[in-house]
Design a protein around this nucleic acid. Sequence first.
DNA 1: AGTATCGGATAGTGACACTATCCTATTCAC
DNA 2: GTGAATAGGATAGTGTCACTATCCGATACT
Lengths: 213, 213
Amino acid sequence: MKISELSRRSGVPLPTVKFYLRAGLLPPGERTGVNQAVYGDAHLRRLAAIRALREVGGLSIEQIADVVAAIDDPGLPVRDVLARSCDAMLTRPGSPPASPPAAGGEIDALMVALGWEVRPDAAARRELAETLAALRANGYPDLPAEAFIEYARLMEPLARAEIDHFLEGAATSRERAVEESVTGTVLWERVLTTLRRAAHEHFVSQAPELTRH
Amino acid sequence: MKISELSRRSGVPLPTVKFYLRAGLLPPGERTGVNQAVYGDAHLRRLAAIRALREVGGLSIEQIADVVAAIDDPGLPVRDVLARSCDAMLTRPGSPPASPPAAGGEIDALMVALGWEVRPDAAARRELAETLAALRANGYPDLPAEAFIEYARLMEPLARAEIDHFLEGAATSRERAVEESVTGTVLWERVLTTLRRAAHEHFVSQAPELTRH
DNA sequence: AGTATCGGATAGTGACACTATCCTATTCAC
DNA sequence: GTGAATAGGATAGTGTCACTATCCGATACT
């Protein structure tokens, strides 16, 4: 299909499709002439993925560019694709990696306690350390890092199942599986957090009436 | 303390503090003269909460304004504060509530199946419906809404424990408990999602080596 | 008395994600 | 074959957002 049809079928405005092409989010179409190119289903899927990462995941264009760079790197082992896109998704738009957070050592100890193999420089470590610091500044002044363990144990079987599902898919088509694993990460994350909030509302509404003080 | 000390102690630049005052995120200080005012610890806590909601939660100024409007409404029952701030946090910045998502009915049925009491117009319902639609457009074309049930059952005990903890606090000081419940919602959410991603990395690294294809 | 700081108002900045316009070259319908 | 309708590519413009800078007259400290 040509670019106008790609735009129409995906629902993404044509200037935006061009913008994504320029930014490298969407690979170029197959050239059929000096100024003509055709696009395929992979482009449609990629556009859906970009919109999901933007609108549901809230990622910046730059973050998405990092993610697709990992996806489109043909020689990169699957595990590294996931690691790199996880890092990209956790690296906040306007934050230079200025100061290693103070709580970093505690998070390292936590990972050891959990028995989790996570790269020493994984963005998730920094993220957890920062969140621990933020919790301490917001009503949990003496919170130990071990408080995260029960949450971690809860996520273990879930993450396990998700990775198993992904590895099945990866055996057939690397490109699709990897792309879906990235969108799946942010979409299922949204499912999880929204269900948590709905459950909050449910349990609060079941509690005895509380008004002011 | 005066505004400059508030700025210094909180680490928030003074023009930004003024900006938050103007936007209504920070309540005005107690006036001691025609052009003097003093601020207290509540203002320091509020500033920490604002930064957490902005930087960790990624909320817009407008969303935070909605949240603090609920917190600062003295006659509002606690359950309604949580409901309103949950809605505000889930209402995306630039999205007019244009079209009720197609999957809304399925989510309603899901809530019935779960036995959850959630307002019919809760933002969480729309959010779940949109996420279901996004999943169907991104590699799960026939996903039934019931697929969310196992995630929901996983969140149930967690949400239950979090609400119990919150209700304990609410019995002593409404203002602090409510504010902490809001920051806690977004901060613990970040803990949960980051641990999930770390667990992904752990399980992928344990899988047999996969390269291309 | 004189300098510093205050609160309040207004305007400006930089980043970001598009969006619009132009241009030349090629297709496609007839 | 020919003329209108795209194609692709480059460049510039727009709107939003979260600050940030400047100005002001009025206190407050020393």
